[in-house]
Amino acid sequence: MAEGLRPDPMPEEREATALSVRGDAGTLKLVSKATYFKEAALKNLFLACAFMAVAAVALIFVFVGYRGWPVFTEVGASNFLFGREWLPTQDLFGILPLFVGSIVVTIGALLLGTPLAVGAAVFLSEIAPPKVRSVVRPAIELLAGVPSVVYGFFGLLILRPIVADLTGGLGFGPLTAWIILAIMIVPTIATLTEDALQSIPNGIREASYAMGATTWQTISRVLLPAAKIGIVDAIILGMGRAIGETMAVLMVVGNAPGFFRGMGKPLSTLTSQIVMDMPYASGLHRTALFGMAIILFLVSMGLVLTVRLLSRFKEEGL
């Protein structure tokens, strides 16, 4: 039997070992050099794969940090983070309105998308007959595969005129972005919530039904509470997707770098503003855009960290 991380002998070897033990009680056959070499090579190959991913993240962070850091010294951290005006032509680089814009767009999308996604997950996991499930689940997964520019197009051409009728104006603004983003985060939240529900042992469901609970009571009183950490995880990851989404938001949000003034009034977000300005920005303006990227990076890091912490709670069974 293998001890710790020592490579387990290959099956053929194990057989040979068994035979030699039987044949000659005195000697146990040693694991061959070839086996050790193969095992070590594979281990290092997988290590390299994992390392590449980590290295990519680290490199991006270093690059963005290096290019963006001067904004904190030259504009000043508080002017940059809490400045209320984004007017690069007048050297005003306050990202607060953009940050607020990102938050507004994200929260709205979550409020619309979460109930939809959790509802879909409950349906898939607990209610849908296998045949329906085999159609609906791929359809939801397909949503994740639609390029965001297509969502943007859909928003621009179909949704925007409807929103314009509802709110007045041109229909560029948070409401349109909410709806588009809500649809975009449904697959993330729905599939992760479904996984969380599916990971609940079937005995728990049986116990609830056997107690005389209805399907709805079982879902609302046992299954959703049991899956709550998984669902919060799902929502946080959906949030990460929403806050980082660029293209679809850019196409419908209006890109006016001011504070939120209404559901139908143009707005801008950190991501969309970076794309809008990057083609022509230079000097300090460009540095400020990298500074915004640092903020986005930190936000998503914070979200991932939160998910990690929550998973630890789950392991401790709290």
């Binding site: 609940i200 042992p201 005995g203 728990i204 049986e206 116990a207 609830s208 039904y209 056997a210 107690m211 005389g212 609970a213 209805t214 009183r221 046992v222 509470p225 049991a226 069974g317």
Partner: peptide, 27 residues
């Protein structure tokens, strides 16, 4: 549902709900 209230069931694998002891019994 009413039938199952009158005929309780215990399973091979203990299957308490992932909630407190009190809430399990009060369920």
């Amino acid at each position: 549902v009413d039938l199952r209230r009158r005929i309780g069931m215990i399973f091979q694998q203990p299957n308490p709900f992932p909630m407190s002891i009190y809430d399990n019994v009060a369920y």
